[in-house]
């Protein structure tokens, strides 16, 4: 059984654009319209945030979007309801990103089963320890053909990067700097880290995230890996818009073209 993430990277080796948006944001029922606009205007992959009250790895912009989505009424139950028929419209690979607590309470097996049912391809849970995943959950994720994507950072040792690569499926998420999301740390200082990643010849493709906000930063990421992930800048672009589709079109054009 093939996974859409693998299919994407099989056909596209460079410049893969993955865009993050919190589910149920800006309004509860914007989840699908946002996905449709992302697909129509040229994103290659969609990362949907499952909002959590206490997102430790996120900066203020994504925190606020989560708070707003929760206030809008978003939950895992509502999200799976919204995603019930999304594969009739969306062919891009779709990831769910979120924190372990809501998933644990929902039930890991039930969660994976639902993801497979609606057509989700991959999961990012930054606070799920790799060891625990290997010991307890890997067979469940594999049973439902879900790729679990792990993060590496500039502080991650070479040995651990190799371990993470061996456990990851789909791609490895390379955090560009030691930071929470949305911090403006200069990616220029991270060249040695990107070179190190390239030299390791990982089995998985690599996407760079954190700090990517425009064409210059996306190109920098793309030239050092298979592509980039944008979250905070995208949330900013749509948080106050009156025309979602137009805002998304403009945002993606700004990242892809001058």
């Amino acid at each position: 059984m093939s996974n859409r993430i693998d299919q994407l990277f099989a056909g596209k080796k460079t410049g893969v654009l993955n865009i993050y948006c919190t589910a149920g944001f800006p309004e509860l029922n914007d989840t699908l319209p946002v996905m449709q606009s992302l697909q129509q205007h040229g994103a290659d992959m969609i990362e949907l945030g499952m909002p959590f009250s206490d997102p430790l790895a996120d900066g203020p912009v994504i925190q606020d979007s989560s708070t707003r989505a929760i206030k809008n009424g978003m939950s895992l139950k509502v999200l799976f309801e919204q995603l019930k028929d999304f594969r009739q419209h969306i062919h891009l690979p779709v990831l769910l990103m979120g924190y372990l607590n809501p998933v644990l309470l929902y039930g890991i097996e039930e969660f994976c089963k639902k993801c497979a049912e609606v057509g989700v391809d991959g999961i990012i849970v930054p606070d799920l320890p790799m060891d625990e995943y290997e010991e307890d959950y890997k067979p469940v994720f594999e049973k439902y053909n879900l790729h679990l994507i792990f993060l590496v950072t500039p502080e991650t040792s070479e040995e651990r990067i190799k371990k993470i690569d061996s456990v990851s499926k789909g791609f490895v998420y390379a955090v560009s700097s030691s930071s929470t999301t949305g911090k403006d740390k200069d990616m220029g200082h991270q060249q040695a880290y990107f070179e190190k990643l390239k030299a390791l010849h990982l089995k998985n493709p690599v996407l760079i995230g954190f700090g990517i906000k425009d064409k210059a930063t996306f190109d920098a990421a793309a030239s050092n890996s298979n592509g980039g992930i944008i979250g905070t800048a995208f949330i900013r672009a749509i948080e106050n818009t009156t025309n979602l589709d137009a805002a998304i079109k403009q945002f993606i054009a700004g990242v892809k073209h001058n």
Partner: peptide
Amino acid sequence: GKLGIIHASKTLLMQTEDGQI
């Protein structure tokens, strides 16, 4: 509380039925 994760520790935790703290 119910079993959950807060501040990186698995413990008893006051949370909603959707897992929000």
